[in-house]
């Protein structure tokens, strides 16, 4: 008998009918509880005694429209900086993590430097690194000094590279030693083993936490405005100072969330895929 002419038993039919009823019931419960909660929230917020004042100073559509161009141009800086710094920090983290796995006395200084780097930059607050690089380094008055924006980017790369190096290292260490034995037994050198066997597995495993750090980086790139460049939040601050109205901040906040959504969605998707693979799917 093939699967197609299988006639479900009485018990199976009852089970299916019950499951269908349960599904309809669950949807109804979810819909009504959402509606109830939403109504309550709207009543609580709009009914509050200060609602009108808050709405005027935070949600003024005219001011939002006026602030949008400058905030957007600030956000463009965030986006460019994020793209460069994310790539830079991922590369730096990967290199540092690999350097820390090197064995043998020749590599002692390399290992020590790499370890010292991760200890220092994971401990040092980003703001201090930023000030040291953007204010301290130009003070040296060296020739060919890069602009403040580049120095700020370097500060971000150095700080996040430290975190990402530890994530990569955890991934490398999670690859079982039998995989190394198999690769070496085939005659692959240490480098080839890293490149073709260990790193591909390690990166796949730690992709979710790596992306999570990139999402965090997205919020921190704005800190370069402390050194002068105008990012979205700084643009909103300037606009607010001109109008004495906080709406530009809300505009910037909404834009930030919109910018983060694709990144977070990708992170969730990668996490889900990793979890599926783990469970032998």
């Amino acid at each position: 008998m093939t699967l197609l002419d299988h006639v479900p038993s009485e018990a199976q039919l009852r089970r299916s009918a019950y499951r269908r009823r349960q599904t309809v019931y669950s949807v109804l419960v979810a819909a009504s509880s959402t509606a109830a909660l939403g109504t309550l929230l709207v009543i609580a917020v709009t009914g509050a005694p200060g609602w009108d004042r808050v709405r005027r100073s935070f949600l003024d559509p005219e001011i939002a429209r006026d602030a949008l161009p400058t905030v957007l141009s600030g956000l463009w800086l965030n986006v460019r900086l994020l793209a460069c710094c994310a790539v830079g920090a991922l590369l730096l983290g990967l290199v540092i993590a690999v350097l820390r796995t090197l064995r043998g006395p020749v590599f002692f200084p390399v290992r020590a430097l790499a370890a010292g780097y991760t200890y220092t930059f994971r401990g040092l607050p980003l703001i201090i690194v930023l000030y040291l690089l953007t204010l301290g380094v130009p003070g040296l008055r060296l020739q060919g000094m890069p602009p403040v924006l580049v120095l700020g980017g370097i500060a971000l790369v150095l700080t996040y590279g430290g975190y990402l190096a530890e994530v990569f290292r955890a991934g490398i260490e999670s690859v079982h030693s039998s995989q190394l034995a198999a690769a070496r037994s085939l005659g692959l050198t240490y480098r080839q083993t890293m490149r073709h066997v260990v790193l591909p597995q390690a990166v796949r495993r730690v992709a979710p936490p790596l992306l999570n750090d990139v999402v965090a980086l997205q919020k921190d790139v704005g800190l370069v405005s402390l050194a002068g460049p105008i990012d979205a939040v700084r643009a909103a601050q300037i606009a607010t100072a001109q109008t004495f109205n906080y709406t530009p901040y809300v505009v910037a906040g909404v834009l930030f969330v919109l910018l983060a959504i694709p990144l977070i969605a990708v992170t969730d998707w990668v996490t889900l895929r990793a979890a599926r693979r783990q469970s032998g799917g």
Binding site: A183, R184, R204
Partner: peptide, 21 residues
């Protein structure tokens, strides 16, 4: 050079040790 030696020897393990990726 151990890498050169291992190229002349094939090894198979109890747990297969195939590369899963």
């Amino acid at each position: 050079d151990p890498d050169r030696v291992r190229r002349r020897i094939g090894m198979v393990f109890q747990a297969y040790n195939l590369f899963p990726h």
